[in-house]
Amino acid sequence: MDRRYPYIGPAEIRDRVVPGCLGREIGSAGDLAVWLAEWPADEREEPFTFVVDAGGALRLAPRRSEHVVCAGGGPVLSAGEMGFVRDGDRWAVREVSNQSTGYCPDVTSWAAVAAALDRAGLDHPGGFTHPIVFRRCPRCGQRNIVKDDHFGCAACETPLPSVWNLGTTG
C-alpha cells in the first residue's frame, strides 16, 4: 500500500486551499502538452509544483504555488517539483524532486511518482534527480532536511531517526 502523506505545514498556508481548485490533472502526454502550451516559453524552463494525489493522479501547478493547494488540501502519495524537456515531438520529465516542506514525503514516494508518470505515458529519469531526506527531531519537533548524510537536528543537535517520521500513515 502506498503511504499517504498528510499536510504538516503551516495552517496559514493550508487556509489558501479553495474547495474544488486543484492542480491540473495530467493523465496523458497530450494533457501535458496542452498544459505546457498555456505557459510562456521562459516559464516552461522552470520546474513546476506537482503532487500525486491520494488517488494516484499526477497534478501540476505553477512553481511558486503551494503543494497543499495543488492537492486541494488532501493527503498525497508524493509531492515536489518537476521539470520538463522537449524530446522530439513530445515532452519528457527532465528532473523531479520530493521537495515539499508542507508534506515532507519520503524518498520512497518515488514509486507513486513513477506509477503516475508511467500511466500518463511520460518518459522520466527513473528516480528522484534531487532526492531530499526529511526527518522530525524526536526531542524538539523541528522538521529537518538531512544533508550530507548528517542525521543530526539543525536546531538542537539530537540524532535523527534513520526512517521517515514526519506524519501518520494511512
Rank of each mutant, 00 (worst) to 15 (best):
G170S: 13
W110L: 07
A111P: 00
L58G: 05
R135I: 03
F50K: 03
L77I: 00
R64Y: 15
V76Q: 03
A114V: 06
L36N: 09
S65Y: 14
D42T: 08
L122M: 05
G27L: 12
R63P: 04
R16M: 14
C140R: 09
V146S: 12
E43Y: 14
G152F: 11
T169F: 06
P6T: 02
G167C: 03
P40Q: 11
R64N: 15
A111K: 14
A92F: 04
T158R: 08
P131G: 06
E157Y: 01
D2R: 14
E157Q: 13
A61S: 15
A116D: 09
A111G: 02
T158L: 00
V34G: 10
P125H: 06
I13R: 14
C156S: 06
S100A: 12
V107Y: 02
I8R: 10
V133T: 15
A111D: 14
V68P: 02
L32N: 06
P62H: 13
A79C: 00
P40K: 11
R136G: 01
S109M: 04
G56N: 08
C153P: 02
R4W: 08
G23V: 04
A120M: 12
S28D: 09
T101L: 08
P105A: 00
A112C: 06
D2Y: 12
R136N: 11
G20R: 10
V146D: 10
R63T: 03
D149P: 01
H67F: 04
R136W: 00
R119A: 14
V52K: 07
P47W: 10
A29L: 05
G73P: 09
C140W: 13
V52T: 06
